[in-house]
């Protein structure tokens, strides 16, 4: 009868869409290297501690070797200009099932901007809406990289896009939202993130 229960669980995963695994290892290597650089060995230790205690198969873990590296320094100006994902969001943007969205604008006219604002205000799929001007984006950048004069010298306010930040109502389908706005005049690109409810609207800091 135990066998029978097992079969139920097997059947429950029978619609596995079978995402490719070969890309997964590569992506994990890239992301894992980044994690290791950022945290040294500290981060995974908390996860492992309990297992080590019970399974007891591991020789003394290197608890405090390789202290965490100091502040992140970006490789390029473009990387430094990237908005920072809020801590309570998934680290990478998502293509579907987003809870929060940022609509980046290009050189938008005043008229296009108010049209877009009107559309967004009337959209029942949104739970919250905020606007960030390029001045605000630039000022955040200056605060964040205040100790890095090279970066500050490399960009001006016009390098930053203005953006709308949205929080979707629970159940609102992100691809639909994206399709609705991505071709609107003045829209450059649309980025979705998956966030906890305490994240800032849009999922970026």
């Amino acid at each position: 009868m135990q066998r029978n229960l097992r079969d139920h669980f097997e059947a429950a995963v029978s619609d596995d869409p079978g995402f490719a695994l070969d890309g997964m290892a590569q992506a994990a290597i890239v992301e894992g290297s980044r994690l290791r650089r950022r945290h040294g060995w500290l981060a995974p230790v908390g996860v492992a501690a309990g297992l080590i205690a019970v399974i007891g198969a591991v020789t003394a873990p290197r608890l405090l070797a390789d202290a965490p590296k100091s502040a992140d320094s970006p490789v390029t100006v473009a990387a430094a200009m990237m908005p920072v994902t809020a801590p309570s969001c998934w680290r990478e943007p998502v293509d579907r099932d987003a809870t929060d969205v940022v609509i980046y604008l290009t050189d938008v006219t005043g008229e296009q901007l108010s049209l877009l604002r009107e559309l967004l205000h009337g959209d029942p799929g949104l739970a919250a809406l905020a606007f960030e001007s390029r001045e605000e984006a630039y000022s955040k950048f200056r605060t964040r990289w205040a100790t890095n004069p090279d970066l500050l010298a490399a960009v001006t306010v016009t390098d930053f896009p203005a953006a709308f930040r949205l929080r979707l109502q629970p159940g609102t389908d992100f691809p639909t939202v994206r399709a609705r706005y991505e071709n609107a005049a003045g829209v450059d690109r649309i980025v979705g993130r998956r966030c906890a409810t305490d994240a800032p609207v849009g999922g970026v800091q």
């Binding site: 997964m24 290892a25 992506a27 994990a28 290597i29 992301e31 894992g32 290297s33 994690l35 290791r36 945290h39 060995w41 981060a43 995974p44 230790v45 996860v47 492992a48 591991v58 873990p61 290197r62």
Partner: peptide, 12 residues
């Protein structure tokens, strides 16, 4: 999960 494991791979 795999990214976390890769970060700790030498140790585990």
């Amino acid at each position: 999960t795999f990214a976390r494991m890769y970060a700790a791979w030498e140790r585990i």
